[in-house]
Write a protein that binds this DNA or RNA. Structure first.
Length: 358
DNA sequence: AACTCGGGGGC
DNA sequence: GCCCCAGAGTT
């Protein structure tokens, strides 16, 4: 791409952006911390999903110091349901870094930002350009899609060399003051006009006249992406286990999927339930069937059988027995278990009702 | 370079 | 179903 045409793209884009940009919460602040929080939340996550989390998070942890000093249980609870939980654990690690190395203030320095946990090329560019008006690219999926279409570029955007090439290209063309708006304009266009699924709205696009994919009449052919591998299936027997008042939760391992979150006890489906009970110290229990559930992760599918377990007698168990109120306040439960959780609460309520009217 | 790591909305 | 989303860390 010639330098010249990229400058033209930026000019058309920022002009359009000033008129059509959405009023988003994180566009109302200049606080680098708030902008940082928004960028972490927005990684691989849609704007509408982020909004309620963003407001609640900043309300409870309004400064970098609050984040650095918070309990991990609290930050995971604030992230509950948003996914990619290592984002918030890395952000807290970075907040501690900022407290120790930068006196609690986000460094206005691209290289320093890149050294913080959880801040990669995209987020470093976004914070540097939006919060500090520094001339750095912020290349995300939107930018890659827009660029691929405008220049009818056939390179596979799944390859990191393609992303890196665009970063360098855009970096070279950016100047200080406008970088934040250019980056946001590229993303805004990608999110609202040059959309990822379905027909792009080329009739509303400020780049229509110079877009090569539009000229060729095949914008949907871009960007070129290599295929991803299929998901593996896992089959589980999940237990909503109660003693009548409290419910058994189990803390997940500190590494891997859903690290450090809480879960309903479960075993692989081929593992017999009485065997699991023996392992767990459950000596006497009443078992009712619940609805099975399926949950899809990026690379795994969980096919879950579910059981309501009314425990009558038990020894020591490896579980945390919590009340419903405690669970709601303090324990981050992944979305994978939410339907079984809700049905379990209903059955628990019915059970209490029957006891009273016996 | 390939894998891992969530969840949900749109079609 | 399948797409992919304001990506980063690990191997």
């Amino acid at each position: 791409m010639q330098e010249q045409s990229l400058q033209t793209v930026f000019a058309l884009l920022t002009e359009w952006y000033h008129v059509y940009k959405r009023d988003l919460p994180w566009r109302r602040t200049k606080d680098p911390y708030a902008i940082w929080v928004s960028e972490i939340m927005l990684q691989q996550t849609r704007v509408e999903a982020v909004k309620p989390y963003y407001a609640r998070f900043l309300e409870e942890l309004p400064t970098i110091r609050h984040l650095a000093e918070a309990d991990e249980e609290q930050i995971l609870k604030l992230w509950e349901g948003l996914g990619y939980y290592s984002r918030v654990r890395n952000m807290q690690a970075a907040a501690k870094q900022v407290m120790a190395e930068y006196d609690g203030k986000m460094p206005a320095d691209h290289k320093a930002l890149l050294r913080l946990k959880g801040i990669g090329p995209y987020t470093a560019g976004a914070v540097a350009s939006i919060a500090f008006s520094l001339p750095f690219a912020a290349v995300d999926g939107n930018v890659l899609r827009v660029m691929s279409r405008v220049f009818a570029d056939e390179r596979d955007i799944m390859l990191q060399q393609t992303k890196k090439a665009w970063e360098e290209e855009i970096n070279d063309a950016l100047t200080g003051e406008i970088a934040g708006d250019v980056n946001q304009a590229l993303m805004e266009l990608g999110a609202t006009v040059c959309v990822p699924n379905g027909e792009p709205k080329c009739e509303n696009c400020p780049l229509r006249t110079l877009c090569l994919a539009y000229q060729k009449g095949n914008p949907m052919q871009y960007p070129v992406k290599s295929e991803k591998k299929p998901r593996t299936k896992e089959y589980l027997s999940v237990c909503f286990m109660t003693d009548g008042k409290r419910i058994a939760l189990r803390k997940r391992d500190s590494k891997g999927l859903l690290a450090n979150l809480w879960e309903l006890p479960h075993v692989p489906k081929e593992y017999a339930l009485p065997m699991a009970f023996a392992d767990w110290g459950i000596q006497q229990a009443e078992i009712k069937n619940m609805r099975g559930q399926k949950h899809i992760f990026t690379h795994i599918e969980w096919h879950m059988d579910a059981y309501f377990i009314n425990v009558k007698a038990m020894a020591d168990t490896p579980f945390q027995w919590v009340t419903i109120e405690e669970a709601k306040e303090k324990y981050a439960l992944p979305s994978a278990f939410k339907k079984i959780w809700a049905e379990g609460l209903d059955m628990l309520e019915d059970m209490e009702y029957e006891q009273i009217h016996l």
